[in-house]
């Protein structure tokens, strides 16, 4: 076991973990078994493809299923639980997902929101193709990405020409 100290959603935390504990396990595991109980981050695959586990580590999107918890020593981690406004209301990006039907079953959604937030931080007004390109590591099986792409475009303050034609 190793002690790992990091900041999660602005709060300093310290836990004893096995070396083989993945960051996503540390985040999700029940507090009774040494985790943080932040179950908003999901695991959808085991080959680092689906992106349901995406969180931000020091501001960068990372697949938390493909990073050891011990590698997050000293890092600032943000999860979906840390994305709402301070008063608990939806952030503009989250609100755009609701407004544009960017989710159905909700399972890929936390990862989508985290990836979208990383994109908008890098590129505040991405083109539709830039949005689609950036979502390459996030699989959604429900929406056909239609509402997700619309939501991210809307959150960036852009109208999509194709949207008017629908």
């Amino acid at each position: 076991m190793t002690k790992v100290t990091l900041t999660v959603n602005g709060k300093a935390v310290s836990r004893e973990v096995e070396q083989r504990t993945l960051l996503v396990q540390l985040l999700r595991d029940d507090p009774a078994s040494g985790g943080l109980g932040l179950t908003g981050t999901h695991v959808g695959c085991d080959t680092s493809q689906c992106g349901a586990c995406t969180v931000h580590v020091d501001g960068m999107a990372v697949k938390s299923c493909t990073m050891l918890a011990v590698e997050a020593e000293g890092a600032a981690v943000t999860t979906i639980e840390g994305m709402a406004n301070a008063d608990g209301s939806l952030s503009p990006l989250q609100q755009a997902f609701q407004d544009h039907h960017g989710l159905q079953c909700g399972f890929c959604t936390p990862g989508m929101v985290m990836t979208a937030a990383a994109l908008l931080a890098e590129n505040p007004t991405p083109s539709e193709s830039a949005v689609r390109y950036y979502l390459e590591g996030n699989i959604c099986r429900c929406t056909g990405y239609h509402g997700i792409v619309k939501a991210i475009m809307a959150a960036s303050g852009q109208d999509m020409p194709a949207m008017a034609a629908e």
Binding site: T39, G40, I80, A84, G88, L90, T109
Partner: peptide
């Protein structure tokens, strides 16, 4: 959507 967008859904693995 509110609970899913804020990480407060309750799936079986949770």
């Amino acid at each position: 959507d509110i609970r899913f967008l804020t990480g407060r859904g309750r799936y079986t693995d949770d």
